[in-house]
């Protein structure tokens, strides 16, 4: 069953409790962080508006990072994008391909939120959700979270008339459904991130076709090679016989 988060950016007040809960709950080493709170204020004094961007993995259903990952270190499970770090080759394709600029290379490996796989497998909830004092985060079944997000967007309109849900369809639907105070463009989010078309062609067509062609050609060449070599040997024998008939000295020496 697909799981998802709701992240209500209208409510987030930038306190960083989520980031520290994530850090301490997952015992992330120094230098590793899955959530960054980024001040996002627009306008000029005194006509200002803004809030806090939560820079974290949005768990795209059509995840470009998964599409390009050559080792399967990144994979989808329960609607979330997991990361099996030991399997990572450090190719950085995910870093380049993420439409939200999320994965970071730390010690040569891709690093990002994996939706608290270990914690949820152990029966807990994601660390960030359970600690958020602003109750800006929720976690549960995706369909339920979508409903929650819509309700939250409706409530947010009391303060932000343009409040809206983001992630219902983007990138195949996000596993972190955002409740935005304004249009995505205003908040620096792509209204619809480009689907990883080329990456899908690459991984879905070019790679299997290549493997297939190489394999088939190698087999065909093996079979044809045996036949052709036999032909060539026969040909050489014919030439030899013909030369012996002629009685050429050089040829007889060779035999």
């Amino acid at each position: 069953m697909a799981q998802a988060f709701v992240l209500d950016l209208g409510r987030c007040i930038g306190c960083e409790a989520c980031a520290l809960a994530c850090k301490t709950g997952n015992e992330l080493p120094t230098g590793v962080s899955y959530i960054e709170l980024i001040e996002q204020v627009r306008g000029s004094f005194p006509d200002l508006e803004g809030g806090f961007d939560n820079h974290r993995c949005l768990h795209c259903q059509d995840a470009a990072c998964v599409a390009v990952c050559p080792t399967g270190a990144l994979y989808k499970e329960d609607g979330l994008t997991r990361l099996n770090t030991p399997a990572c080759s450090g190719c950085e394709y995910c870093v380049t391909s993420c439409p939200y600029d999320v994965p970071r290379m730390v010690d040569g490996a891709s690093t990002k939120c994996d939706g608290c796989k270990a914690t949820t497998d152990a029966g807990g909830g994601p660390w960030c959700v359970s600690t958020c004092p602003s109750k800006a985060l929720e976690y549960g079944e995706r369909s339920e979270m979508l409903r929650t997000a819509r309700t939250r967007a409706e409530a947010l309109r009391a303060h932000y008339p343009n409040a809206q849900v983001y992630g219902e369809t983007q990138a195949g639907g996000l596993g972190v459904i955002l409740v935005l105070p304004d249009d995505p463009e205003v908040l620096g989010l792509p209204r619809d991130p480009d689907p990883p078309t080329v990456a899908n062609v690459w991984q879905g067509v070019v790679q299997p076709v290549s493997i297939g062609l190489i394999g088939a050609t190698a087999v065909a060449a093996g079979v044809a090679g045996v036949i052709a070599r036999r032909n060539h040997m026969a040909e050489l024998r014919d030439i030899e016989e013909a030369e012996q008939l002629v009685g050429d000295g050089d040829s007889s020496e060779e035999a």
Binding site: E27, L28, N84, G90, V106, D107, G108, A118, A122, G124
Partner: peptide
């Protein structure tokens, strides 16, 4: 190429 990634190669503390 890559140093040990302490976060992920250990059993989580609660296990």
């Amino acid at each position: 190429p890559r140093a040990a990634h302490a976060a992920t190669d250990g059993t989580p503390w609660y296990r």
